[in-house]
Design a protein around this nucleic acid. Sequence first.
DNA 1: TTATATGCAAACCCTTTGCAATCCG
DNA 2: CGGATTGCAAAGGGTTTGCATATAA
Lengths: 140, 140
Amino acid sequence: MNKYSVLKEALKDSGLRYTQQRQTVWDELCSTSDHRDAEDIYVTLVRNGLSVSRATVYRTIEVLVKKGLARKLDIGDGRSRYEMRQDNSHHDHMICVNCGRIEEFVDLRIEELQKDVAVSNSFILKTHKLQLYGLCRDCQ
Amino acid sequence: MNKYSVLKEALKDSGLRYTQQRQTVWDELCSTSDHRDAEDIYVTLVRNGLSVSRATVYRTIEVLVKKGLARKLDIGDGRSRYEMRQDNSHHDHMICVNCGRIEEFVDLRIEELQKDVAVSNSFILKTHKLQLYGLCRDCQ
DNA sequence: TTATATGCAAACCCTTTGCAATCCG
DNA sequence: CGGATTGCAAAGGGTTTGCATATAA
């Protein structure tokens, strides 16, 4: 299953059409493991001579996120970031307040304690968001 | 130290002027322990016949947050929420995805593990944001 | 063919800002 | 008095949307 069929299948599943623009956006998202905003993706595509509009970038990303092919990340600066969904594992983020770098981490102990907190508050936990803000290795 | 002097002192400390509008916004923020957005505060004040502009609400809230009298909360829906700072204790939030209710919680074990994660990633932790999304007691 | 997707620009939403008028100290 | 604060409306930044045109199936 190559990168073309991944998208094609996902679209077909939802009765959506396979278009050049959607493939283009998906390719760009897959080209790095970074957490990028929509404008960044749009500008890169245009700079590379690819034909896509900003509106289509936004609309395509929305489709990808809904289909589970991409993840949306909100770090609180007013712009949403997107990352290709690498696998099924959930992860949280460490954000460098100096250089903006975003690193991922997983801590199962914390995940467990969150469930704990939910239970003791009679809260049915659906998702969570944990972000650590500070200085990355290079910015200290 | 009544609610008037709290604000007066804080403003004086920063060489800022004590104004009717600032007191008005601060009073409104203190009137509940809810997490409210700027528009909500503005509309309530106007509805109560108080004279203040939207711009002043935003500017005042910013002053209060900077002075540590209020806290800003971003739950990822595009609007910032504000709460009066009750005491010095940090806390995280549980957000009901059905009714929007926001409850607070503290879990020292999780706080400790966050420090742990930071250390093992050579990350200098400054702040963090942890939000649990799900269904509150009443919405299950 | 024909309904879905695209591109464009305008609209949106929340928030910030420039500037003249007002007010605190 | 004189600079800080206010109100207004316009601008800003990111994102969404209406509509005519283009295109996948």
